[in-house]
Design a protein around this nucleic acid. Sequence first.
DNA 1: AGAGGTGCTGCAAAATACGCAACGATTGGC
DNA 2: GCCAATCGTTGCGTATTTTGCAGCACCTCT
Lengths: 296, 296
Amino acid sequence: MRHLKIYEMIEAVHWAGSIRKAAEDMNITASALNRRIQAFEKEFGADVFERLPRGMRLNTAGELLLRHIRFQRQDFTRVQSQVIDLSGVRRGHVKIACSQALLPYFLPQQISLYRSEFPGVTFSVKVRDRIQAELDLSTFESDLALVFEPVHMVDFEVLHAVPQPIMAVMSQDHPLSTQPELRLRDCLDYDLVLPDRQYGVRFLLEQAAKRLRRNLEPILETESFEMVRHYAAYGKSIGFQIPVGLNKVARPELAYIPLAERDVAVGELLLGHLRGRTLPVAALKFASQIATALHN
Amino acid sequence: MRHLKIYEMIEAVHWAGSIRKAAEDMNITASALNRRIQAFEKEFGADVFERLPRGMRLNTAGELLLRHIRFQRQDFTRVQSQVIDLSGVRRGHVKIACSQALLPYFLPQQISLYRSEFPGVTFSVKVRDRIQAELDLSTFESDLALVFEPVHMVDFEVLHAVPQPIMAVMSQDHPLSTQPELRLRDCLDYDLVLPDRQYGVRFLLEQAAKRLRRNLEPILETESFEMVRHYAAYGKSIGFQIPVGLNKVARPELAYIPLAERDVAVGELLLGHLRGRTLPVAALKFASQIATALHN
DNA sequence: AGAGGTGCTGCAAAATACGCAACGATTGGC
DNA sequence: GCCAATCGTTGCGTATTTTGCAGCACCTCT
């Protein structure tokens, strides 16, 4: 879009930090880029960047403008996709930021299901923890977020929420594997495999441990949920995961046992988008499919 | 703003109905305008206008685009005004759509009060009935609406609501002028001066009359609230108005008596804006001033 | 059938954007 | 303390884009 090129230029300068680098990124000369930025600032009525000896940085006005630019572009592409959808062909692109837990089973299945009906729709999935996912929404880098126990919740509009009790994951021959429900204090006697502190599962477990006046001392702490699940198959260790990230059929050698609700609070898996946004048609439809899938 | 000129062109063609007329409005040639529209449609990926023998008309895609254009422009000017406000000078422009009742006393007083604090802020006030006011908001022709008993209420976000009982207006020597409260059936014995059917006051009176199994048969029906008030001074006629449109000091020769609540429902005067919009700073501040003024 | 509309298109002129080279200023390292 | 490496900025000649003019083909209403 020619008429939005100046916006791309501003974003490029913001990203690169200097006119010369941005100019190289855009395959034009620095002088041309410089003059267009200057012309825009003159028209706009105020400077957008502050000129530092080492480059350019957005000033307060620029930050406000950048927010507008991002929103504007997202809304424009939304209109475009709506128009394309008007002609009957179901096309589109859905950008999702989600927890790791959704990656192995849930999302692949849902995306595949959706694409079986609308093969023209493509997806991009970004793995984000619960803080970064909300950030992703606010910069329009994602349309939807599907996260466990998000943090800030400002500007996060919830489309659907499902309770997700935390499950203990262990091998079938583990001493506790026959219990219908596990107390947290029983788990603490075994080797614990925990996700890093930024994750919601860990957060809820820490809270619960604090109530027991105990500390969580994992033998393995990792940012990979996959590793948590796989390591739990070895020895007498216990991993933790939420139900949506588990699949009994795929891993029959593992036992999944819920933690007692009176010990560990039941978390919420939330599907949402940026407050006030109008989602692209494809994202909206996919969201409603997700919602019904989670409901069952 | 050079880069938004194509949007102006599209709006101009939409407004004028043909390229040649729009070109004349914009002081350019039809060929230039034509080519820019064609170039935009090519980039956009779809036609925006349908070509009729008598001119151009927006197609469905064009309607969607037009909504985006209007929102985009409003948001851009909002950013501009925020940036200007950043530099300390309190400037801005507030566009209000309001009921006639607010014109004589309430709004002039409020605008004057606001401007005494922020002389750099200017106003435009449009008189709109309760249907058109909501339409005005949705096309971004007004920032705020202040209306009595609005109709659709979709996309209308209420900032403040005040109950407004309907008042009977008559001369001081009217037989009913000494009552503390009036029954509707007593009023019906006299000459009635009523506003047209599109107004909220009339609507509530009609509803009340229907419950009494009576018809309203006004001797004078007008779209001018001013005329209602003034005519009530003559003879034994009775006019109707809401409290915010009345001022005892300015018109001491008139008596204002509330109608009994059990006869006529109390209406609501609503201050609101388009749902999902971020208002300009000036409009937001003025709205909060209005809200506190209405509260007392 | 003609008059008055419409959108559209070559072609040349005007306006605009661009690339190149150079300037002044500041920073970081030797 | 100086030199190399950045940075943003500007003058100038050249490309590129946009515009205005005139004319074409089409349609509608009288």
